[in-house]
Write a protein that binds this DNA or RNA. Structure first.
Lengths: 121, 121
DNA sequence: GTCATTACTTACAAATTTGTTTGTACCATA
DNA sequence: TATGGTACAAACAAATTTGTAAGTAATGAC
């Protein structure tokens, strides 16, 4: 994404990680924001400003960066309307839709295990 | 994990992210290594050195760090045998086992979409 | 007595990710 | 003429993650 990296261990590991189907997929939705963004867009298409409201403290920069990356990976589709105050809508692509059931299961795991933590400790 | 952070946006966002069931779960397996480690341990318990061999370029430090974090989150169980050259075995806990079907689906997504990329572009 | 083995630890450094601040273009409205 | 709303971009800075290199403890083999 930025300046190219050499043949460091960092890069070799990265290659290893993206060669594997599992981590290839995981990387597409890795980081702090991508999963939640995709999940929100799973309900309906949203404008930039609507997304921003969903995450009270996200910086505009972060939101743009994540959306750009998701667009690049063809997980979201970006539509610009040539209107006076600009309007841009984001929605999931078909391949991103396939993540939604996985998110459901992850979410169920999270819910269950957060509950265990509370009663357990 | 290190020195405590203040009430920065970074932290507020972190809180937001770990409050959500979905991202709470995602964070448990986030980063470069956790998912693959868990996946490998899904087949059978492994020693430290065996795990290391699975990932040709991982540093021992990284492997220990990840294993410690997974142990902390009760996703792996660590067993030390008081033998002469030390022996330590790692295995999944019941709650980690529940991730395995999710990994399968992720992996399937990865496989499918890597194939699409090749034929598409 | 020296070396090898295993599973680490420590101090350090590089790379990446995330956040802050300021600014832009467009037109409408006051 | 000044201000406001939308969806960003650019330069900079902080925080976290990942990697490097060297060292440790115990013990048995040579």
């Amino acid at each position: 994404m930025t300046a190219r990296k050499e043949n460091s261990t960092y890069t070799l590991n990265e290659k290893f990680i993206t060669d594997c189907d599992l981590t290839y997929a995981a990387n597409k939705i890795g980081g702090r924001w991508k999963i939640v963004i995709l999940d929100k867009l799973g309900d309906r298409k949203l404008r930039f400003s609507e997304l921003k409201k969903e995450f009270p403290y996200i910086s505009e920069r972060m939101l743009t960066l994540q959306l750009r990356a998701l667009e690049q990976d063809e997980l979201v589709k970006r539509t610009v309307y040539a209107e006076v105050p600009p309007r841009v809508e984001y929605e999931l692509t078909p391949i991103a839709l396939e993540f939604l059931p996985i998110f459901c299961q992850l979410s169920a795991w999270g819910k269950k295990n957060k509950a265990l933590k509370k009663s357990g400790s």
